[in-house]
Design a protein around this nucleic acid. Structure first.
Length: 747
DNA sequence: CAAAGATCGCTTTTT
DNA sequence: GCGATCTTTG
């Protein structure tokens, strides 16, 4: 990340590396463990090594597999390697580069003809919603209360079992709760098999089982992959580590990069102990330490080190930087969580006005996604654009999920869950009773609900299932079944994906249902169109790949990189990124560290690592923010400062805010009459006169809010303030120099 | 069967 | 304080 490298034949990919980096890039085969502190050029080493293998050693990309945890990391790695490998000399065709899950899906699709695997190669990937629904349905079948047996807990139990390679039959039972878990696990598996689905854990589990139990297959892949490279190795879980060892079992060229201090996924099975295990498993491995940091100031590093050093059982690292000095960290204590959010926005706003800082220099990080809401409100109020990573922005939308369910159903009519989702959306008279009848019928006949529908659609009254329903209901179901059959024909006739998409939208009545003339309807329609654009990109590759990507690509990956605006993201999502000025909010006990981590020391250590990851994202400035009072579930509660704040040496931290300024009584008053920061003039803005660019009645366009009409414009505090009425969000007041408004010419 | 109204429960982090 | 889910009513 420090300096993006474009390939230039006169500069080799080794020149700008420090000695340990160079060693890591060029070290010969065998197992290699690279321990890389934050900002030490970890990604750089990985990409250069791939380039080195291909360009200098003549390894075919076909013989390389490189695994990451996120799609974003995979995409970046591919781009960077491509820039390093001279065009025409060799392309990266044939390389396997992607996330663990994507690589496993690829492997399993290729091998699913093998009768060892209990699914066919057109399996679909069950998402979280599928899992949740299946578990709830299983509980219902056993007449169990989903409040007593939480689906989330059960799904965690099942996931853990799968990560330990324990099938339902071998699930050890010591009490009744275990017995419930075992039964649900078993039923859940049956349902997945019946719908030809694999959950995330299955992708890994079946890959490992296949390679363990089918020596021929293992040999084929192990011979092929002369080099296995892994990013963020500290985040691997048991199954993933097994998989890596299997893939490298022939050539033994396993190159892993990681940092145990940045292990933040223990809760989903990651085991940083794998780092130590690696040294035991491969006693002859090369171990390389990257300790020079190219990102942060010394002050930031000192503070981060002070925080992480309090964790027990770690190899201490001697991180150093040549960037001496730096400004101390700032701590701002706000009255309440709204004050917290407005302080952040005000601070960013000020820096953008006074020193013309770019929006992209800032990031605001928080522990839980829910914390983004107040921030968004404040950014919106200030008229500042922002980018939000994650938090179900797009794929969590109802309309997007509906459309995906339609597509999944067409691809796989046995997908009962998708069928149930859309059979009555829009309403077609298939209510609760009808659906129940349909499910019973399908179960009795031993086929999927989709198959019953298709039969009804095709044979109408002649169908054996017609008489199960009243004529009216049967007709409605038959109509739906007929549509489904036609779409399947389209699919088999290789109808281009966008065309199929449109047919579904029109024929299902979904378009009409969504576009009911309301503003909200149009907004939802926009999301559907966005999904359609995505489908368009997949028209060459087809529905199967489209669906796979929808399952494996998350909102975390949909970050619009182009927009130069402050980034809002969770601390988890921040790993691997860097920003000039990092804000970390919510430094209160119970939030960071999170209340759920208080019982177990290892979980507390993980919270600390999370904070450490956040701190080390900063190039220059860190601002920590907390709130005296915070609204949880609607009511305000007093908070206590995070214990992590005490770990930062005093001389590295500068405190400001209400708590230090006002005694309690005045604070109370201040709270009753909150000051809105908009009324304050931004301090120290350069006194150059500005010209009004906008006039009432002009049409303008905003990057996120679309078109609107200028209602008024005035100059205040040397900034032009424009009042705009947007079709999408209504009335907004914007700062013209910041808001990226475009004038729409009149035709 | 659909729409409006009432209640519940929820917050960790993600492929 | 919100959104999903259950309950009541037309």
């Amino acid at each position: 990340m420090p300096h993006p490298i474009r390939y230039n034949p006169s500069v080799t990919y080794l020149e700008d590396l420090n000695p340990p980096q160079r060693q890591a890039v060029t070290v010969e085969g065998g197992p290699v463990l690279v321990l890389a502190g934050p900002g030490s050029g970890k990604t750089r080493v990985l990409t250069r090594r791939i380039a080195h293998l291909v360009v200098a050693l003549g390894v075919q990309p076909y013989n390389i597999i490189a695994v990451t945890f996120t799609n974003k990391a995979a995409r970046q790695m591919r781009e960077r390697v491509e820039a390093l490998v001279p065009e025409g000399l060799r392309s990266l065709d044939g390389i396997w580069l992607g996330t663990f899950h994507a690589m496993c899906a690829r492997l399993l699709r290729r091998e699913a003809g093998n009768n060892f695997l209990p699914f066919t190669n057109n399996f679909v990937i069950a998402d979280d919603d599928d899992q949740d629904t299946l578990i709830r349905q299983s509980l219902k079948e056993f007449n169990l209360d989903d409040k007593q047996y939480r689906p989330a807990v059960l799904s965690a139990i099942i996931s853990r079992a799968k990560n330990e390679l324990i099938p339902a039959e071998d699930f050890t039972v010591q009490n009744y709760r275990d017995e419930v878990a075992r039964r649900v696990y078993q039923r859940y598996e049956e349902r997945l098999r019946a719908e030809n689905k694999l959950d995330f854990d299955d992708l890994l589990l079946w890959s490992v089982r296949l390679l363990v139990e089918q020596p021929d297959t293992r040999q084929r892949y192990a011979r092929r992959f002369q080099h296995v490279l892994v990013d963020e190795f500290q985040d691997t879980n048991t199954v993933q580590y097994e998989l890596l060892k299997l893939l490298a079992s022939h050539h033994h060229n396993l190159f892993v990069v990681g940092d145990e201090d940045q292990s933040i996924y223990r809760w989903r099975g990651a085991d940083a102990g794998n780092v130590r295990r690696f040294e035991q498993d491969f006693p002859d491995c090369h171990k390389i330490l990257l300790e020079q940091n190219y990102r942060s100031t010394q002050v930031v590093l000192d503070a981060a080190r002070a925080v992480i050093d309090r964790n027990p059982d770690r190899t201490p690292k001697q991180l150093f930087t040549e960037r001496g000095g730096g400004q101390p960290l700032a701590l701002y204590e706000a009255l309440d969580d709204r004050g917290e959010a407005s302080h952040v926005v005000e601070r960013i706003y000020r820096e953008m006005v006074t020193r013309r800082a770019k929006g992209g220099e800032f990031a605001v990080m928080y522990r839980t996604n829910a914390q983004s809401r107040l921030l968004e409100e404040e950014f919106l109020r200030a008229g500042l654009p922002y980018r939000l990573v994650g938090a179900q922005r797009f794929y969590g939308r109802r309309e997007v999920k509906d459309l995906i369910a339609y597509l999944r159903l067409v691809f796989n009519p046995a997908d009962d869950l998708s069928l149930l989702r859309v059979i009555n959306v829009p309403r077609r008279g298939a209510g609760e009773k009808t659906i129940l009848g349909l499910q019973m019928t399908a179960q009795d006949a031993g086929i999927s609900a989709g198959a019953v529908l298709v039969s009804l659609g095709q044979d109408r009254v002649a169908s054996p299932y017609w008489n199960v329903f009243t004529n009216r209901t049967a007709l409605a179901l038959a109509e739906f079944g007929d549509m489904l059959r036609r779409w399947r024909q389209d699919l088999e006739a290789d109808t281009p994906l966008p065309a199929l998409f449109d047919r579904i939208l029109v024929e299902s009545g979904y378009e009409g249902y969504l576009r009911d003339g309301s503003e909200e309807g149009e907004e939802r329609w926009e999301n559907v169109q966005e999904l359609r654009r995505l489908a368009y990109e997949y028209q060459e590759r087809g529905l199967a790949e489209f669906l796979e990507n929808l399952a494996l690509v998350s909102d975390q990956d949909t970050l619009p990189d182009q927009l130069d605006a402050p980034t809002l993201l969770t601390l988890h999502a921040a790993k691997g990124l860097e920003f000039d000025h990092v804000f970390i909010i919510g430094l209160d006990e119970g939030l960071l560290p999170h209340s759920r981590s208080m019982d177990e020391p290892e979980e507390m250590a993980e919270e600390r690592r999370l904070f450490y990851v956040g701190l080390t994202r900063a190039r220059n400035l860190v601002t920590l923010v907390r709130a005296e009072q915070r609204a949880t579930f609607g009511t305000y509660e007093d908070t206590r400062p995070s214990r992590f704040l005490q770990d930062i040496p005093e001389h590295l931290l500068q405190t400001s805010g209400v708590r230090t300024r006002l005694p309690r009584r005045q604070r109370q008053e201040a709270w009753e009459q909150p000051q809105r920061w908009e009324s304050k003039p931004p301090a120290g803005s350069a006194p150059e006169p500005i010209v009004r660019q906008f006039q009432p009645a002009m049409r303008v366009r905003h990057p996120s809010w679309g078109e609107g009409m200028v209602m008024d414009s005035k100059v205040q505090d040397n900034e032009e303030l424009v009042d705009v009425f947007f079709e999408s969000v209504g009335f907004k007041r914007l700062v013209a120099s910041l808001a990226k408004l475009e004038v729409v010419p009149k035709n």
